[in-house]
Amino acid sequence: MRVISLCPSNTEIMEFLGLTNLLVGVDDFSDWPESVKSLPQLGPDLSINLDLVDELKPDLVLASLSVPGMEKNIEGLAARNIPYIVLNPQSLADIENDLIVTANALNMPDRGQEAAGQFRSRLENIKQKASGVRQRPKLYWEWWPKPVFTPGSINWLTEVSEAAGAENIFKDVELASVQTDWDDVKSRNPDYICVAWVGVRKQKVKKELIINRPGWPELEAVRNDRILILEEELYCRPSPRLLDGLEKLHHLIHA
Rank of each mutant, 00 (worst) to 15 (best):
M70N: 15
A166R: 02
M108V: 08
E232A: 11
E218Q: 15
V61S: 07
F119K: 07
T158Q: 09
D110S: 04
L60V: 12
P217K: 09
H250G: 06
L139H: 05
E233P: 03
I229A: 01
K127F: 01
L249Y: 04
V205I: 15
F29M: 13
N155F: 00
A93M: 09
I227Y: 06
K204G: 04
I154G: 05
V200P: 04
Q203D: 15
Q135L: 06
P147N: 02
D27E: 14
F170T: 01
L22P: 09
L228M: 13
H254R: 09
F149R: 08
L22D: 13
S121G: 09
Q179P: 05
E114F: 05
V86C: 09
L157F: 00
E12T: 03
N168L: 03
N49K: 08
R2L: 03
L139R: 03
L123Y: 03
L92I: 12
L157D: 00
P109E: 11
W32D: 15
I85F: 02
N107V: 02
W143V: 10
N21H: 13
S131W: 02
L157N: 05
I210D: 13
R80S: 08
K57T: 09
M1I: 10
V133A: 13
E218A: 13
D181W: 01
A78E: 15
Y235T: 01
D31G: 12
I154D: 14
Y84L: 01
I48G: 12
Q41H: 15
N168M: 03
N10E: 12
V86I: 15
P40Q: 06
Y235P: 12
D51S: 11
P89R: 05
L246N: 04
T102Y: 01
P109K: 09
L228S: 09
S35D: 11
I74P: 14
H251M: 08
E174A: 04
P68V: 08
I193A: 04
D94P: 07
E208P: 07
P33A: 09
E208I: 11
